[in-house]
């Protein structure tokens, strides 16, 4: 009887802890994946997969929970973007999302501009996929809204290294976008 009660309490606590973790981190985990994928639907898929995996494997009140989620979302998104199988579908969805976004901000958008933006978005995703995994990750994490300390935790590096990694990643991204060559 005692063991059953303990188990119930334990389960309830675990659910409660997971609930809090989900509430506080879901949008941020999605935002990180979005920096890599540029697609809201796929980013949410990644975030949900990551949360499910975490729930299965780890205690939700683990001190490393947030950094684990951020890192896992980044790597899962990078794996996804490097998969050619989904690329065609992603491009069409990205183009559609851009049309919706642009339409909201500028009323009626020139069709040629829509095509250009879609193309620009595709170039960005391809450039991200060509960066080193660490460079792409630091960009996704930092521009996904993490502080330097949080980026350091997620990447497992010292905080003093984040500026250097970020600087090199941004330089590499610019070169990739401008020249299409990796550094």
């Amino acid at each position: 009887m005692v063991s059953v009660a303990s188990r119930w309490v334990s389960l309830s606590d675990r659910e409660r802890a997971f609930e809090g973790l989900f509430e506080s981190e879901y949008s941020r985990v999605t935002a990180i994946a979005y920096r890599v994928l540029g697609n809201a639907s796929e980013s949410e898929d990644v975030a949900q997969d990551v949360f499910c995996q975490f729930y299965r494997l780890h205690p939700p009140d683990a001190p490393y929970a947030r950094s684990w989620l951020y890192r896992a979302a980044t790597h899962r998104a990078l794996n996804l973007i490097r998969s050619n199988k989904r690329r065609a579908g992603r491009e069409s969805t990205v183009a559609l999302e851009h049309q919706v976004t642009a339409g909201a901000g500028s009323r009626e958008m020139d069709p040629s501009l829509k095509v250009e933006r879609s193309e620009s978005e595709r170039e960005l995703r391809e450039a991200m996929s060509r960066l080193s995994r660490k460079s792409a990750a630091v960009l996704a994490l930092r521009y996904g809204g993490l502080s330097y300390a949080e980026v350091a935790d997620a990447l497992g590096v010292r905080i003093g290294q984040v500026g250097t990694l970020l600087r090199r990643a941004e330089h590499a991204l610019r070169r990739e976008m401008n020249h299409g060559t990796s550094i």
Binding site: T30, A31, Y143
Partner: peptide, 8 residues
């Protein structure tokens, strides 16, 4: 990369 956040 500082794009509009996805609506979750």
């Amino acid at each position: 990369l500082s794009t509009r956040e996805p609506e979750v």
